[in-house]
Simulated scan of single mutants.
Amino acid sequence: MNEIYTEWGRFCLRYRQVTETSEFSSAPVDLPQFDGATEFRMAANFSGGKLMIGTLYFVPYYEIDPLPITFHCDKAIASLREGYCLLVPVAVDTDWSEAVWPKSMAELDGYIANTTGYPRLVEDWIMRRRRELNKLLMVVLVKDNICYGYLLGSPRDGVFTDTRVISVFFDRVEEFSFENRMLIELELSVQHLQTLIRHARQLQPSSGYVKEDQRLRYALDELASALGKGVSRSRLT
């Protein structure tokens, strides 16, 4: 599956006429429960400049105002913007290759219509949501638990087929959840912590549960980040 996602990443860059290169590996994915094409609230950002590497969170509808909560959770993702995502499953036996990857709204609309059997699904969804200012709109196709994203522009003069589509790849896709954080001050050896982080990454222990393994990776990232900040502060004093 990584080979397909690598081709998808290259396709995205070629379509946007970007000459930069990047490493493409399928993002860790933790999808909410859904059956057929389904709308979700989302919070997303894009990093890497022209590479537009996407981070996507599905936001539960009971979270009235998710972004202030997000700010308190992790300042590293404070650039998240709210919006709506249409999640569309692609059947395993459906062709999904560069030969059929949509490059325009007409092609995206046609592909989803053929996949779902609902000709006006995307058009009706976009025209209903386009009036909400400063809200991102994305269509994400899911096949074999891998996500392929399309960021949508606004319909020009209200013409649906003139809506701009930008294909994007992700490095993180998951449900957003509030987590209490605490500040812990420790005096530890930098060398010991660096060794711990390095060996934990190399061994890549697996618990057999996707969420647990993801939390371990994020914990190691947070520990490495905190270590780097601590070393920088100590050099300044």
Rank of each mutant, 00 (worst) to 15 (best):
Q194N: 13
A37Y: 05
R201L: 08
A43H: 02
V231F: 12
K103N: 09
Q214E: 07
T94H: 06
R41N: 09
Y111D: 00
A226H: 07
R181Y: 08
T70S: 14
M127R: 04
N45R: 06
S167W: 01
Q204R: 15
V165L: 12
F169W: 11
L141P: 04
A219L: 13
L216E: 01
Q194K: 14
E179R: 11
R235S: 08
R41I: 02
S167R: 04
S104T: 14
I77K: 10
I53G: 01
S225D: 09
M1P: 02
A37V: 06
I53H: 00
V59R: 00
V29W: 03
K143M: 03
P102Y: 14
K135A: 01
A27C: 15
G208L: 06
P28Q: 11
K50Q: 03
Y148D: 02
R41A: 03
L220F: 09
A44C: 08
L121D: 05
S206A: 11
K143A: 03
G208T: 05
S25R: 14
L137K: 10
S225H: 13
L80T: 01
L223T: 08
E175C: 11
A113L: 05
L133G: 00
S207N: 07
T6N: 14
L137S: 04
A91E: 14
G83V: 02
A43V: 06
G208R: 03
S154K: 15
P155Y: 07
G49S: 00
L121A: 09
L223F: 02
N114D: 15
N114F: 07
S232V: 08
D74Y: 06
D124L: 08
L87K: 03
R181A: 12
R16A: 15
F46W: 08
L67Q: 01
R120Q: 11
C85E: 05
P28A: 12
S154W: 11
H192M: 09
G230I: 05
S26Y: 07
P60V: 00
D124Q: 11
F160Y: 14
E20D: 15
Y61L: 10
W125H: 02
A99R: 05
I126Q: 01
S26I: 11
E107M: 04
R235Q: 12
T21C: 06
P60R: 09
A99P: 01
L56Y: 02
S97W: 05
F71A: 14
I64R: 13
T6S: 15
R14G: 08
R215E: 15
E132D: 11
A224S: 09
A76I: 06
N145P: 04
D157K: 15
E23S: 15
A99N: 01
N145Y: 14
D171L: 06
A106T: 12
R201N: 06
G54C: 06
E132T: 10
S206G: 00
L196K: 05
I77G: 07
V173C: 06
R120Y: 11
Q204S: 14
A226Y: 04
K229L: 08
R131L: 12
F11C: 07
G83L: 01
D144Y: 13
Q33I: 05
V122P: 00
M105G: 01
R235I: 10
Q204K: 14
E212V: 12
A106E: 10
D30L: 14
D157I: 09
L227A: 12
P68A: 12
W125P: 02
R215P: 04
P60F: 03
E63N: 08
R130V: 13
L186T: 13
A113W: 00
E7H: 15
